[in-house]
């Protein structure tokens, strides 16, 4: 059976992958964040970024903050 219907209980926090040694930049590191955008300005998936689930969330937040202040584009 697919695990599609299995949802994480509300309020639980994802545990950071122990093997994840990546550093997530903040919204001011524009040149670094730009690497995680596709040609159309979309955020790349975990498969391509190589981040664990928690780091990918932080990356997503950083990119969205950078977009808000006009450092990164919404669309390419």
């Amino acid at each position: 059976m697919s695990s599609f219907t299995e949802r994480r209980p509300k309020g639980t926090i994802l545990v950071k992958d122990k093997n994840c040694k990546q550093t997530v930049p903040n919204y001011k590191d524009v040149e670094f964040l730009r690497k995680f955008l596709s040609a159309h300005g979309q955020i790349v998936s975990r498969k391509r970024s190589g981040y664990c689930a928690q780091c990918q969330k932080q990356l997503k937040a950083a990119i969205k903050q950078a977009r808000h202040v006009g450092l990164l584009p919404f669309v390419g």
Partner: peptide
Amino acid sequence: RWDERKLAYPIANRKRATFFL
């Protein structure tokens, strides 16, 4: 003053802005 940059998209009809941190 953090930087003065070109904006990725126009904000309030401005293409450049000064960033204060």
